[in-house]
Design a protein around this nucleic acid. Structure first.
Lengths: 173, 173
DNA sequence: CGCATTCAGTTGTTGCGTCAACCAATGCGG
DNA sequence: CCGCATTGGTTGACGCAACAACTGAATGCG
């Protein structure tokens, strides 16, 4: 059994193990804080933020799914739950009657405005505060290189997502 | 409403968005390949690898749970499924009759030996090959700094996990 | 020695994500 | 126009993870 697999060198293995651990722990930490303080998963928070940032606070389901890296069924389930809670509303798109538009409600805006500071604080405490400015830059480049492999179409890092950590007030105003 | 939240600066936001995207996509990519080629989730693969690396190929459930970042109930369910598939075996610990020991079976060893090359190849293709050596080092340091916040007890990056990407043959031999 | 507490694991329930099937609307080729 | 594949979205069933409750064994304390 000639095995031509290139096994990982020690430096590779060490970095890889840490990256995997990071990828496993980070989502849980984000969910835990948001769920505790606002009753939202990080995914729901991201979806609401994307809606808040959209023109007219409205977006097609398909586009929202793409921006949040969700499958359409997943988004549909989540949207139903958010709608039941009065945080968003859905209505058929006038131009294309197959499509559905989703809008964030005032209650939804209020909720994310309230949740945002705590979330940002969590991000700082768990990640950003641990890094020097040059490490932030390195992280940006490294994650970009990996994402180019993982997400060649760059759906996820589309424009509006950068907004997802800013204040919401100017939208509410 | 005086809001003293320190919102994210553009560089912070950019790096953060990419990190979140990475953390969201990576587990799915790992699961997809392993599930397709070996019928294992990445978590199951990691658990089997940890067992293969353990002395006597045996470990206490609690220790295994800690190493794989699983809750005990989760590991219990997973272990039952793996046992039903004949990949591991469980038996009461002689020294402490509360405890349960888990051992990987020859079939389990065979499965992970078979699965390992494809998994390593996936890791290279999606991550390692995208990074220069110095970036690998940077990633190691950055992930370490973040993990110190996220996982202060360093349960997850415990000793044996580094092994999880090496060849299995010397264990099988 | 007897009882309470803690520890190790399992089991049941609930909630979320995925997959496959489905319905409705569009638009395109004949 | 008329069939038919394609697109946009929803629904239902199934699998896995989190949480809580429970069992049984070990320990500690009077």
């Amino acid at each position: 059994m000639t095995d031509d697999t290139r096994w990982l060198a020690p430096e590779e293995s060490a970095a890889w193990v840490r990256l995997v651990a990071l990828a496993e722990l980070l989502p849980g930490a984000l969910d835990a804080q948001l769920l505790r303080d606002a009753g939202l998963t990080h995914f729901e928070y991201g979806a609401l933020m994307a809606l808040a940032a959209a023109p007219e606070r409205t977006m097609r389901m398909t586009e929202l799914a793409s921006r949040t890296n969700a499958t359409l069924p997943r988004l549909s389930h989540v949207a139903r739950r958010l709608e039941e809670r009065g945080l968003i509303e859905r209505f058929p798109c006038p131009e294309d009657r197959r499509a559905t538009n989703a809008t964030i409600t005032p209650a939804g805006l209020a909720l994310i405005s309230e949740a945002a500071p705590g979330h940002v604080e969590t991000v700082r405490a768990n990640v950003l505060d641990a890094l020097a400015p040059e490490q932030l830059e390195q992280l940006y480049v490294i994650a970009g290189a990996v994402l180019a492999r993982l997400d060649p179409d760059a759906r996820l890092s589309a424009t509006s997502c950068q907004f997802s950590e800013g204040p919401v007030d100017h939208v509410v105003a």
